[in-house]
Amino acid sequence: MQEALINVTKHATAHSAEIRLTYSPDRLSIAITNGTGTGPAFSPAPDSGYGLIGMRERALSAGGRLRAGHRLQGGFEVVTELPLHPYGVDPAPAT
């Protein structure tokens, strides 16, 4: 979430962002969306690109996934889905 919000302040023409948290017993979904209008509200700087790579790597290392991109209605969205493990249960039992 932190990296996605930093990207909003660095790259977006939008002045706000929306954060949606959705959860189920086994999964947490986090969506950061900025911009609405008709055109893209995100224009990466020439030296950028590692933020999204780092977010994707962190999501994968936790067993989750991440998608990011321009929205048809304008703006940009970053969505990650992360697995939730019950307290006290080893998520990867030894074999």
Rank of each mutant, 00 (worst) to 15 (best):
Ala12His: 02
Thr38Ile: 05
Ser48Leu: 11
Leu28Gly: 12
Leu52Glu: 15
Ile32Ser: 12
His70Cys: 05
Gly35Val: 06
Ser48His: 10
Val8Gly: 00
Ala94Gln: 05
Ser48Asp: 15
Ala41Asn: 05
Pro46Phe: 10
Lys10Arg: 13
Gly49Tyr: 01
Arg27Trp: 01
Val89Asp: 01
Ile30Gln: 07
His70Ile: 01
Glu3Arg: 14
Ser16Thr: 04
Pro83Glu: 12
Ile6Val: 15
Tyr23Ser: 11
Val8Ile: 07
Pro40Glu: 13
Thr13Val: 08
Arg71Thr: 09
His15Ser: 06
Val8Arg: 03
Gly51His: 07
Val89Met: 03
Gln2Glu: 10
Thr38Lys: 02
Asn7Cys: 09
Ala92Asn: 10
Gly74Lys: 02
Arg27Ile: 06
Pro83Phe: 04
Gly88Phe: 02
Pro40His: 07
His11Phe: 02
His85Ile: 14
Val79Asp: 03
Gly35Leu: 03
Ser61Pro: 00
Asp47Gln: 14
Met55His: 10
Pro83Gly: 11
Gly88Leu: 02
Ala41Ile: 01
Gly64Val: 02
Tyr50Asn: 11
Leu82Lys: 10
Gly64Gln: 05
Gly37Gln: 10
Gly37Arg: 12
Thr22Gly: 08
Pro93Thr: 07
Met1Tyr: 08
Ala62Leu: 14
Ile32Val: 15
Pro46His: 08
Ala45Tyr: 01
Asp90His: 09
Gly64Tyr: 02
Gly49Asn: 11
Pro40Ala: 15
Ala31His: 00
Pro86Ser: 05
Glu81Thr: 13
Leu84Lys: 15
Glu18Arg: 06
Ser16Gly: 04
Leu28Arg: 12
Ile30Ser: 05
Arg27Tyr: 00
Gly39Ser: 07
Gly88Gln: 13
Ser24Glu: 14
Thr95Lys: 03
Arg65Ser: 09
Ala92Gly: 00
Ala4Arg: 10
Arg58Asp: 03
Leu21Arg: 11
Ile30Ala: 13
